[in-house]
Write a protein that binds this DNA or RNA. Structure first.
Length: 425
RNA sequence: GGAUGGGUGGGUGAGUGGCUGAAACCAACGGUUUGCUAAACCGUCGUACGGGGUUAACUCGUACCGCGGGUUCGAAUCCCGCCCCAUCCGCCA
């Protein structure tokens, strides 16, 4: 969530930012409302503190009076403290209600887009930051979409997944499974080479962790929950990995922290953006290698570029036609300040598939999870958090299969040969 | 699942209901000493919110000893509920 301090001090910037997300007059009133409620919070806080201070002073005197044997005076004071106590109780309750109200308002405000983010409402307003200039792969007569290729070569099986679990849980097998594992290995190796520490986190997280990255309270419906134990299946490695630093104050010289993790990702959401939900385009469980950075605010945008370049390199090595989009305000996620999406051309479906999303969240996440750093002067500040997929597997597999198919079989990109152990399917 | 023991500052670990935001030690940081390193010595060394102050240094107030409630004029300390952790047993990859 945004910091109240920032909302107060940079109100115009925030308002302008929210307009880029398509917010209009009425919605924008929240900002003024937040400032109002915060004023109220401060006032009440002060009143409460003063009351408590007075009662603390008296309690101390009572101790002294008792010591001196001045019983009557002590008793009189006790009565006064009791009155103060009643007052402070009421104030405390009042303050609690105000803070709850303030939090609710703050939770409803998305991150303020960076000044370089274009205005816009939908995906149509996204800006192509880097287009694919070469021709797309031309497929032979009778080329198939990946779900048919999967059948033909027995790579993964959706019906079997339904039998074991339900729809949206593909079963990979044979070379399909092997390809999956090869990609994971490749992505992790590349990330480690680029200076990211490999993490293998738990795939279940508790409530505090889910709250830290903002899955709770609002996006509860997106996650699978184990009710008996009050744990959630992670929707992305970002959740456990970023939370490693929750409630920590890291020395500035340790920044940036770079971490990478492979995990399966579990997503309940059925609501489809885009009607094309066949095959691997949209599933409840998929594999992903994530990269995460914790950065100094001064360097976070440079790091964002670095992450974009890293993902770009993966695309090139996999020999996939890709383009990079700079998302407009309206299409960005709630928590992001700036996001680049990577899309891969899926030749048989003849459409772009989103395979990576790289974002700078600035202090939106770190504020919530109290992830801070101590600068050279000992001052404590919120760190910036960034993350990106490098990469999401299911759709990459779809693209590789479709783009590389020939009548004789499917070619595996060269970089993967040492991981797959085969060159064609 | 059963039994027991625990949760105090970056770590270890004291703490009789008021003088404890919290001893001591370690780590860290600054300094003195030193041919270098080490040792020794001196000093600093929690966070959040709020007030004052030039959104400076600083200063004052409040809260926080797992979380939430209660008793009391006053709670780290007493009482209740919850959560978590460790160890042993059972089960198991």
């Amino acid at each position: 969530m945004l910091q109240v301090k920032v909302i107060r001090e940079e109100k115009q910037r925030i308002l302008n930012g929210l307009r880029k997300r398509g917010w209009t007059g009425k919605q924008l009133n929240v900002i003024d409302r937040i400032i109002e409620v915060d004023d109220d919070r401060r006032k009440t806080q002060k009143e409460l503190d003063d009351t408590l201070a007075e009662s603390n002073r008296m309690a101390k005197s009572i101790g002294q009076l008792m010591g001196q044997g001045k019983k009557d005076e002590a008793e009189a004071m006790k009565a006064q403290v009791t009155t103060l106590k009643t007052q402070s109780k009421a104030l405390e309750e009042q303050l609690g209600a105000i803070v709850a109200q303030l939090d609710e308002l703050l939770y409803s405000v998305p991150n303020c887009p960076h000044r370089s983010v274009p205005k816009g409402k939908t995906a149509d307003d996204n800006r192509v930051a880097k287009d694919w200039k070469q021709p797309f792969p031309s497929l032979h007569e009778g080329a198939l979409p990946h779900w048919d290729l999967a059948k033909k070569y027995n790579l993964f099986d959706f019906e079997l997944g339904v039998k074991l679990t339900g729809s949206g849980f593909p079963v990979y097998r044979g070379k399909g499974a092997r390809l999956q594992r090869a990609l994971i290995q490749f992505f992790l190796d590349e990330a480690v080479k680029a200076g990211y520490e490999e993490i293998l986190p738990p795939h279940l997280v508790n409530e505090d962790t889910a709250r830290g990255t903002g899955q709770l309270p609002d996006k509860e419906a997106q996650m699978y929950k184990c009710d008996l134990d009050n744990l959630y299946l992670i929707p992305t490695a970002e959740v456990p990995v970023t939370n490693i630093l929750r409630d920590e104050i890291v020395p500035v010289k340790e920044l940036p922290l770079r971490m990478t993790a492979y995990t399966p990702c579990f997503r309940r959401e059925a609501g489809a953006w885009g009607a094309h939900v066949r095959g691997l385009n949209r599933v409840h469980q998929f594999d992903k290698v994530e990269i995460v950075q914790i950065e100094h605010p001064d360097n976070s945008y440079k790091s964002l570029q670095g992450m974009v370049r890293h993902v770009e390199k993966l695309m090139k090595k996999l020999e996939l036609p890709y383009r990079i989009l700079l998302l407009c305000g309206g299409d960005m996620g709630f928590a992001a300040a700036k996001t680049f999406d990577f899309e891969v051309w899926s030749a048989a479906q003849e459409r772009w598939l989103e395979v990576s999303s790289v974002s700078n969240f600035e202090t939106f996440q770190s504020n919530r999870m109290k992830l801070r750093f101590r600068d050279e002067n000992g001052k404590i500040e919120l760190a910036h958090t960034l993350n990106g997929s490098a990469l999401a597997l299911a759709r990459i597999v779809a693209a590789i299969l479709e783009n590389n198919q020939t009548p004789e079989g499917i070619h595996i990109p060269k970089v993967l040969h040492k991981y797959t152990g085969f060159k064609t399917i």
